[in-house]
Design a protein around this nucleic acid. Structure first.
Lengths: 199, 199
DNA sequence: TACCAAGTTGACCGCCCGGTCCGGTTAGTG
DNA sequence: CACTAACCGGACCGGGCGGTCAACTTGGTA
């Protein structure tokens, strides 16, 4: 998929501008930021957007894939670290720091048909699974929590903090800390409902 | 505001049908379910919707207010109970059980101008504050958590579970349990960032 | 029963969105 | 340079949205 033909210089530049603009716009206005606004922000015509991404969904997918690849890299790197607890914390912090939109549906409908997104997601969940497994071995995480749980909880801090009107931009850290404490073994009460499986 | 003039029988019936239909439709398709769909589901013309609610936002507000009033009632009733921990659990369970839409913005922009929503929200947060204060006194909740925190975390379980494609309809209970464990004093590590204030 | 205010309805409006298309522009090559 | 394929831009299209309105129906009353 990458570099079937080398991209022309201006095209490559515009592609990057578009991805950045789209990420910003989505972060500010959620997934229903308009393509026209994104184009304007990138200083580019609307047609150019669709030359690079056949569909708005494909643009979203591209952003998602970028982020998930970055997180996969980080997760794999952190697996080398000794401190399983710190690794977990660092990973989730990084995940939250890419200002996630309110409602990235990288699991539901949309992505089911997008093989690339699924592939990136699977790589990332694999990385998470390993981090979780090791944290559990080291007693840094409760036994009944799975990688999928962690994956799902990943965006919750942003979601929660996102509803506070004039919040500190770091407010999510508070809720991440709260969730992290919930993931630890101390005082864990058994969980109802089996952990989900994203197939 | 209520009963300035007694509503005609059919109008009252339609109003209830509409609120129910809207709640269902929002639960299924999120806040951008169309007014036309809601009307159809209620077995009513689109014009009727706007006779009862001047604006789509007002319809959303009406649902929100209903729910918050119900939760306020429950919260105040639970304050009588002895078991502060169970009370907290019961309250948050009830909150999650009203199938919350993915993105109820009852805090941000929209509602800021809507005095009724704000009033209902203030009553509810007051009820939550009291529950939290007592739970803290009884040692059932960590000291650094506020009522606002709990309020914000209230919908997170639904949000998290909402991304699992064919999830058990009770999956949210798992994440609620996880969050509840995080709210308890055992193994609590100090939280970064001050608790937010919703003004 | 006769009346009318209250309620209902669906066609209609303007707007904005995702996506198309084609005439004009430009990067790279020989 | 000159040439061309890749690229760009923005007017344009169909569709769906929230919201309006004027003609019609109906619940309550005297």
């Amino acid at each position: 998929m990458t570099a079937a033909r080398p991209l022309r210089a201006d095209a490559a530049r515009n592609r990057k501008l578009l991805l950045a603009a789209a990420a910003d716009e989505f972060a500010e206005h959620g997934l229903d930021a308009s393509v026209a606004d994104i184009a304007r922000r990138a200083g580019v015509g609307k047609g150019t957007v669709f030359r690079h991404f056949a569909t708005k969904d494909e643009l979203v997918a591209a952003i998602l894939i970028d982020r998930m690849e970055a997180l996969s890299d980080l997760g794999e790197r952190l697996y080398e670290s000794d401190d399983a607890d710190a690794a977990m914390r660092e990973f989730l912090t990084a995940a939250a720091m890419q200002r996630q939109e309110r409602d990235l549906s990288f699991l539901a409908g949309a992505s089911e048909s997008m093989a690339d997104v699924n592939r990136a997601r699977e790589r990332m969940t694999a990385a998470i699974d390993r981090l979780v497994a090791r944290a559990r071995e080291r007693g840094a995480m409760r036994e009944d929590v799975t990688g999928t749980d962690v994956f799902l909880l990943m965006c919750a801090p942003n979601y929660v903090a996102g509803y506070v009107p004039n919040a500190s931009p770091d407010l999510w850290r508070r809720y991440l800390a709260l969730i992290l404490d919930g993931l630890r073994p101390e005082g864990a009460r058994p969980l109802p409902e089996a952990a989900p499986d994203l197939g």
